[in-house]
Simulated assay, not measured.
Amino acid sequence: MNGQIHFTLNGEKVTSDRHANERLLDVLREDFKLTGVKCGCKEGECGACSVLLNGVLANSCMVAMGSIEGSEVVTIEGYSKTKRFQALSDAYAQTSAVQCGFCIPGMVLACEALLAKNPNPTDAEIRKGISGNLCRCTGYNAIVEAVKIAAREGKGLW
């Protein structure tokens, strides 16, 4: 199926002429130059390509363009302009939860999706909420602590 696909990207209405079977990941990186969306496994296993699709965490490597007509897509570039991002970013810095940074855009969006549903999660709920995002450098303890700090210090944001 060829034709125009209309959606909202980071708050702006956009159109794509890509084939409906193409991956959202490729369109975001190639057409919109949003390189915070990382290409990791291309199989929906690592979370590096995570975006918020209609407010729900999604692996953009598994999303066909034809399925997003009329949808809202938020990447780390759009999310980074929010107060919620700043609270998470500050908490990540406090706990040294960033090393190489490859996983961080997707991990931060996973944390946002979790806190949007549950603004005061337990350790177990945090670990479950980020479980689809792999981190090979930092480890998860610092990230769990960062989410707890963001939840505590960002009261009222989520």
Rank of each mutant, 00 (worst) to 15 (best):
E30H: 10
K38I: 11
I126V: 15
N120I: 07
A116Q: 13
A116F: 12
V37Y: 00
L115W: 05
Y92V: 14
N141Y: 04
V37M: 07
E125S: 06
R127Q: 08
G11K: 03
N118M: 09
S60Y: 10
S50H: 14
G44P: 03
A48L: 14
G156E: 03
R29N: 02
N120R: 12
F7P: 00
R152Q: 14
F32V: 12
S131N: 10
N2V: 13
C137P: 08
S131D: 11
M107L: 15
C111Y: 08
G78Q: 07
C61V: 09
R127P: 02
S131T: 04
K81M: 01
E145G: 02
E112L: 10
A87Y: 07
T138S: 12
S96D: 15
G106S: 06
N54S: 04
N21R: 15
P119A: 08
L134R: 02
H6G: 03
A97Y: 03
D26F: 13
G3S: 05
A142E: 06
R84P: 00
V74R: 11
T35K: 12
N2I: 15
A93T: 06
N141W: 15
E43Y: 08
Q99V: 13
L34V: 06
D31F: 07
L28Q: 03
N141D: 14
S71F: 03
K42W: 10
L25M: 12
T95A: 10
K117V: 00
L114F: 05
E77S: 03
R23A: 13
K83Y: 02
R18G: 00
E45N: 13
C137N: 07
G44R: 04
